[in-house]
Design a binder for these strands. Structure first.
Lengths: 184, 184
DNA sequence: CGTGCAACCGGACACCGTGTCCGCTTCGCC
DNA sequence: GGCGAAGCGGACACGGTGTCCGGTTGCACG
């Protein structure tokens, strides 16, 4: 990773800015590489030089926001960070994720092309975190439960619920309850 | 819906058979209309006459299998059908769905292009069923919880877990526990 | 039977997005 | 200010989509 050339950096900015706008403006699943290139005033070749596909651009944009939450989970104050009982931490995690989703569904939706969700680094992080919490709560088979408990946070589920009139607040409440009743 | 012409019926059979084979043979998400037409020995126009896209063909194939389960939920013996306590019925539902998924993931994956999952008639059925159970169990906000509880049954989640080594049996056990601890 | 009409078939077509390739431009170090 | 390398971007070939329409086939009715 040597130093980035000035023109390259300039283009990277233009691309990310244009992409962010596009994802917010229209159905993120219909945004194409061509769209982004045009909006950024950049050739398609330039785009492909850095990002293999649309999803990876959305992921790059999303990562920034996820980083903050990941940091809080690891060393922030309870109940998000260490110190609170596992079920409380799980509830807090749910709440934080719902808030994150609420602000950035468009990006999250854009980042999903098929099973892409699970290969992204972030999912692995959430997974590891939930598994650790479940283990601490002495629940049976944390490995199997973790993905099941993360599934409600899938962007398309969230988008669907919101569209149906389930507010983030109600969802948070429902998930908090779910977290608290886990195994006794 | 007048009577179907003989040649049309013949072609419908050929198409469904060829599609079933294709979905099972390769990654269902990469099956194309052209593939199916070629495999069925049928023109592309013929395909489009009946099915607007690949997903709807997979859905048609899947529906057949889902119908049976839906019937059992409505009027089969407990614990799947009416008569058992709601949490037991939910656990049984989970078990049945996992088994269904295990047998037909390829179809379920083929049926999913983006948010297609939620517009299909089947999802609405599962949703209504779970909501009814939650209401009977006197859980708070069944509407918000239902989608969350159905999320772990998303085909891509199932496929991912299985690929990771979580057997259907373990998944069933984990979900059963989840169902039983709901709200107290 | 045979005939006519409607339903059905299927290949051709135009379009769009993808991903790659390569001649040209720009950068920044010496 | 010159030069090597990194970066750029348009052109290209490909593959899938969805539509359209001339030709074909099935079936009801005489």
């Amino acid at each position: 990773m040597t130093k980035e050339r000035a023109d390259a950096a300039r283009n990277r900015e233009k691309v990310l800015a244009a992409a962010a706008e596009l994802f917010a403006a229209k159905d993120p699943r219909t945004v194409t590489m061509e769209d982004i290139a045009r909006a950024a005033g950049v050739g398609r070749g330039t785009l492909y030089r850095r990002y293999p596909d649309v999803a990876s651009i959305a992921t790059a944009l999303l990562d920034e926001h996820e980083k903050a939450l990941q940091h809080e989970l690891l060393q922030g104050p309870p109940p998000l960070g260490p110190g609170a009982p596992p079920r409380e931490r799980l509830a807090a995690f749910y709440a934080a994720m719902v808030e994150l989703l609420d602000r950035h569904v468009h990006l999250a939706l854009g980042a999903e092309t098929g099973a892409r969700r699970y290969v992204t680094g972030a999912y692995g992080f959430w997974r590891a975190h939930v598994i650790a919490l479940l283990r601490a709560a002495e629940v049976a088979d944390p490995d199997a439960l973790a993905d099941a408990l993360l599934a409600p946070l899938a962007p398309d589920v969230f988008a669907y619920q919101r569209e149906r009139g389930v507010t983030p607040a109600r969802l948070t409440a429902a998930l908090a309850e779910l977290a608290r009743v886990l195994d006794r």
